[in-house]
Design a protein around this nucleic acid. Structure first.
Lengths: 366, 366
DNA sequence: TTGTATGCGTTATCAG
DNA sequence: CTGATAACGCATACAA
């Protein structure tokens, strides 16, 4: 048992294979009694249909593929929960796949659409520019979430759900400028790179420009998106420059930067203010909390599902949604955080952002 | 094009289908020139072999399935990197699958072994007890990593790679006791539950017992494994009790607890000491750093691969490895952390733990 | 309502 | 080194 096939089940149940197949696929027109018998035999031998064979024949699967670039990125966790939930609500299954940092997510999606007979694809994260030819291998509707995609393909061939990285970085920088900061260090990736790095840097520069402040390469630290990257970049910023504020273009780096500042004996926000980006729940639980540009990630996840399913079900066309972020003010930029006795300080955030209580899940099993 | 099959390629290349198949699978005995021609045709029409069909026929796939319970758990990120790297080095592919919190990972694995013709399975996280019957549906060698598994099946039927949760929690608690703490609050799950919760709680109680201290339900806070869970539990601990130390059985909770303590105006470690568990890299970048029971997760990941491949390749038998943890001392329990001018404080840790620089990867794309 | 026969795209077997 | 052909396990059209 275990390596039973549909024919074995048919024989043992005294029916034909097509009847077994019908039971398997919940076809309506099969005698209730026959169905029970077949199900019992299946259970007794714990029969398990072969997915490869099914997918080989099947035309539609009511399955949406989700290709995540860097599945361990904490930013995606709540989004995945929302996507799976909403897909289930509308009667679709989610097939989740991880793409490594240097993997070709389009190729992965292309293989998947065939293998799993996907009816749609949602990309989370990934690169910025795809050629028309590359995208053309995708035969089912697809949407890019959380990235602004540019390609030479007609915009009507796919959807995007994103934020305006430049605008939001601009707003974050203005936030600091308006509170008197003039020397604002920035932790980001290389300037040349076409990516969120670039876009957010442009917003930063635009805001500075409005205050008559030019680009200063000394206070732009090029670092990777890790705690350690933020820590080291902030350290050299403190050692070599006279910044009064640090803008980290990801919350993870902001956490590392915070460590560097406190370790150096400086106060936050009195000596150095810190601004993050993304809205990870971790930023609410550092001390002080980190002011951050919060992306409405769960709304965006919902929109990704709605968009792709609407197209599949012919209820809509490809569209390009841009969501506004919200600066969540916390102690790292001088906001007075409510204290322990005033009740749970996170309630406001919860109300704004919807349920995201299980974010930042720790080691459950290890 | 795009929906070409092996027969089309064969026809266009002027060869037989089996030759195309040989090219596809890198068989040695195919004329170099023929091979080039076939490859060219494949490329021109960007042919993509159908995985379902391949898996339907194939006997072996040189693929190891990795079933992760809670893939967004930061504890697993570095392990996955190690597993994939080591598998690749030995010529195997990794097929990564996520299992939801309440999903049946054994069932998922069973489907997968058939669908992908897996040659072995590695479980990361998951439940504690499996029945013999349930495990019997797995036909290929499998190992459980990071959990102690108990089942009524013979121990020779699978491998385990784990830590001694009870012993390590005992050591952590002793560490606090030896530094003078007598009122040590603990953040953990329900006592009844058979899980790491239970095991770690037992270690905690054993250490207390050796100092003549009994169980006090008031200072055992039952909370989920999130920042928020740790935060809220620690808050009520501070409000209702007189603890001088808090032992969080996961680092994520320790971070939340730290916030609660600082927010309440208490000092760490002078007023309240904090001990974590797991060894997440985040604990190095809070301020103060969090003393934690560091699991050798990357070594364990390596051992998981070695074990399962050795069995597959008949070089070894199932074994049960238990790895010792190491208490990484940091500021949260009074350890004097090196300051910014003394060079990068993480170097020692790096040397001990091997390469894990890319842990805690943040928002790369969003 | 049920059974039979065919083919999905590939690999394995065997014969050349 | 290469080609023809029979499975793999299932879903579906069609026949009963």
């Amino acid at each position: 048992m275990g390596s039973m096939n549909i024919r074995d089940i048919a024989r043992l149940s005294g029916v034909g294979v097509s009847t077994v197949s019908r039971v398997l696929n919940n076809h309506p027109d099969v005698n209730a009694k026959t169905k029970q018998k077949v199900l019992r035999v299946m259970n007794e031998h714990n029969y398990m249909p072969n997915n490869s064979a099914r997918n080989l024949k099947r035309i539609k699967s009511r399955t949406i593929g989700v290709v995540v670039k860097g599945i361990t990125n904490p930013f995606f966790s709540p989004m995945l929960r929302v996507i799976e939930g909403e897909l289930a609500r509308r009667g679709y299954a989610m097939f989740l796949t991880q793409a490594d940092d240097f993997a070709d997510e389009i190729h992965i999606a292309a293989e998947l659409q065939m293998e799993r007979r996907l009816e749609g694809i949602i990309f989370l994260g990934g690169i910025f520019q795809y050629s028309k030819e590359r995208l053309s291998i995708l035969k089912v509707p697809f949407v890019f979430a959380t990235i602004q995609v540019s390609s030479d393909m007609e915009g009507e061939c796919y959807s995007t759900i994103s934020i305006d990285d430049t605008l939001e970085a601009y707003r974050a920088t203005r936030y600091l400028l308006e509170r008197g900061h003039r020397r604002i260090g920035i932790l980001a990736g290389a300037f040349e790179e076409k990516s969120i790095n670039r876009l957010r840097l442009e917003g930063y520069l635009k805001a500075l420009g409005e205050y008559g402040i030019g680009y200063d390469e000394h206070i732009h630290k090029n670092c990777n998106f890790t705690y350690k990257g933020g820590y080291e970049a902030a350290r050299s910023l403190l050692r070599e420059t006279d910044v009064t504020a640090i803008f980290a273009i990801s919350d993870v780096m902001a956490v590392g930067a915070m460590r560097a500042v406190l370790e150096a004996g400086k106060r936050i926000p009195e000596d150095i203010a810190i601004m993050g980006f993304d809205g990870l729940d971790l930023t609410e639980f550092t001390y002080p909390g980190i002011t951050t540009v919060c992306q409405p990630s769960e709304q965006m996840a919902l929109e990704a599902v709605t968009t792709v399913l609407d197209i599949i079900e012919q209820k809509g066309n490809h569209r390009h949604s841009v969501y506004p972020c919200k600066i969540i003010e916390r102690g790292s930029t001088g906001w007075t955080e409510e204290k322990i006795d005033n009740g749970y300080k996170g309630e406001d955030l919860d109300r704004e952002m919807g349920e995201h209580h299980d974010q930042g899940k720790g080691a459950v099993a290890p």
